[in-house]
Design a protein around this nucleic acid. Sequence first.
DNA 1: TAAATGTTTTTTGTATACAATATCTATTGA
DNA 2: TCAATAGATATTGTATACAAAAAACATTTA
Lengths: 219, 219
Amino acid sequence: MSKIENKILTDLVYEKLKVMIDDGVLIPGQKINKLELSQMLGVSQTPLNDALSRLAGEKFLEQRSRQGYFVRAFSDEELVALFEMRGALEGMAIRLCCENATADQIEELSDCFEGFIFPLNDKSYMEYVHADKTFHEKLIRYSGNPILWELSRTSGYMIKSNMKGLTRPPEETYPEHMAMIQALKDHDGDKAQQLMIQHHLRSRNVFRSKLKKKEPNIR
Amino acid sequence: MSKIENKILTDLVYEKLKVMIDDGVLIPGQKINKLELSQMLGVSQTPLNDALSRLAGEKFLEQRSRQGYFVRAFSDEELVALFEMRGALEGMAIRLCCENATADQIEELSDCFEGFIFPLNDKSYMEYVHADKTFHEKLIRYSGNPILWELSRTSGYMIKSNMKGLTRPPEETYPEHMAMIQALKDHDGDKAQQLMIQHHLRSRNVFRSKLKKKEPNIR
DNA sequence: TAAATGTTTTTTGTATACAATATCTATTGA
DNA sequence: TCAATAGATATTGTATACAAAAAACATTTA
């Protein structure tokens, strides 16, 4: 039997704000006007403050002394760092999946990318975006590591790096995903981890090359 | 010229609480009495609340609806997960060090474990504990990844897993550290990452074997 | 015009009050 | 003696008020 929900206002505000960030109602870099926002949500400033602090702890927001809260924006340099982090975490996740995931779960992961025929049309492109997201999410869930799972749901880092669309075209990433799925089926943790790390480092390189083009002008 | 500090009360409370958790004044599992604590610190409940929320976001505390805040305690299962996470993150850190760290920085990393002669006496054992901590910390700093660096300073996961003493004896970990340092000097990122992951997974196994001994009784 | 100064407005950060809820304690009945 | 209930106490969660600081605006001066 499911528990009766008896949530606290703070939690409701917290969840609402997270959705607002996810939906782009609150834009990266934007200043949060506490008074305005609390009136908009129909709550006092106290539960809003609590929610804002928590979101700052989770890196969705940034607090600047005496200036208030701002929606966290990631520089190109930080985006590079973000993909390195994801490579690390998801690399470990897929390794653990090789050890812990059931046959059914591996089947499910494999099914994510079933039936794509290239070149993709607009509809199947959208489906690929979705497949990509669920694949990486399920990997974490089936890794059996509760900390990774918690991080993926509550860390602004993980969620924000997942938000923007694809960084590389499906033609490029599809074979990489296939190779990972093969490694999963072979229960080859070392191989799978290597592949996942490479997968994310290649995405990182997209941002890093952007960065390098800028730098010379600054010097 | 250094800026004049004009910190907010919330931040001071936040930092104080972090020290209190680190020093064991606040014990894992313990309930936080807000009224008592606010009086102890000589502040009102508002800045305390903000600090508590932030610390919950960073996973130092846990908030249970209508019961308040508790110092976060990690089960054996979560400790296993924690070391898997550290393996992932520090594995990436050492890989990046192979790419980005300067010769001086690699020298500095190597120096951490200079001059240990086995068997260690009480004094040199303590020095080894310290060396271990600084080695892993510097790796993250010299990786050039600002997100990893931020995480290592503000994530309850990272800090808490670092708090307890050594999980394995120096005799066992010393050669592992030496191998990593060699890989660093060779700028062999793949190798270094592999070694680091194995290093932490072995520590994980210490907790995992504890877990397995318990399980059969539950069934 | 543009920079510097002074004034007003807005917004933050903090304290405090209070109602709702949980926890503890005492009492009753089996 | 123990469990169940009712009452008292403590603690949380929320609203509100207000001082201090920042931001915006207007005014003066070069």
